[in-house]
Simulated scan of single mutants.
Amino acid sequence: MNGPVTVEELAILMKARAGLTVDPALLAEAPDVPFEEYGLDSLGLLGIVAELENRYGHAIDNEPERCKTPTDFLTLVNAQLTTGA
């Protein structure tokens, strides 16, 4: 997954903002496994979004907490961060 936010960064954020330890390699191998299976809920995802907004200085719209998989989330977030949408 190319973009400002990588699978590895997402795994780190899942640990830092939601307290979930996820192996980045596992996340990369199965990016379409629902967040639910990792134990990440919408509140945890909102914490990740807040961190990304602070880090990149850009609001992330379109309800990213509704994304169900890492692929969905990274596609949405990276599109907004790279286009400035």
Rank of each mutant, 00 (worst) to 15 (best):
L74Q: 10
T69K: 12
P64G: 14
R66T: 15
G47W: 00
E37L: 11
L52T: 03
N62C: 11
E9A: 08
L74Y: 10
S42L: 07
G44D: 09
G3K: 08
A85W: 06
S42D: 10
P34T: 08
L27C: 10
A11E: 13
R55D: 00
N78K: 02
T21S: 14
C67M: 10
E29A: 15
A18I: 02
E29Y: 12
A85M: 09
A59I: 01
A28R: 14
V7T: 09
I48T: 01
N54M: 06
K15D: 09
T71V: 11
S42K: 06
L52Y: 02
G57V: 03
A18F: 05
L13Q: 01
H58D: 01
P4G: 05
K68H: 02
V5S: 08
L20V: 10
E51W: 05
G39L: 04
G39V: 03
N62H: 14
E8D: 14
E65T: 15
V22I: 12
R55E: 03
Q80P: 04
R17W: 04
H58P: 04
E65P: 11
Q80H: 08
A28T: 13
R66H: 14
L81W: 02
V33C: 01
P4V: 03
L27K: 03
N54G: 13
R55Y: 00
E8F: 07
A79P: 03
E9I: 01
L20P: 13
L13Y: 01
E53P: 08
T21L: 08
L20D: 13
A85R: 14
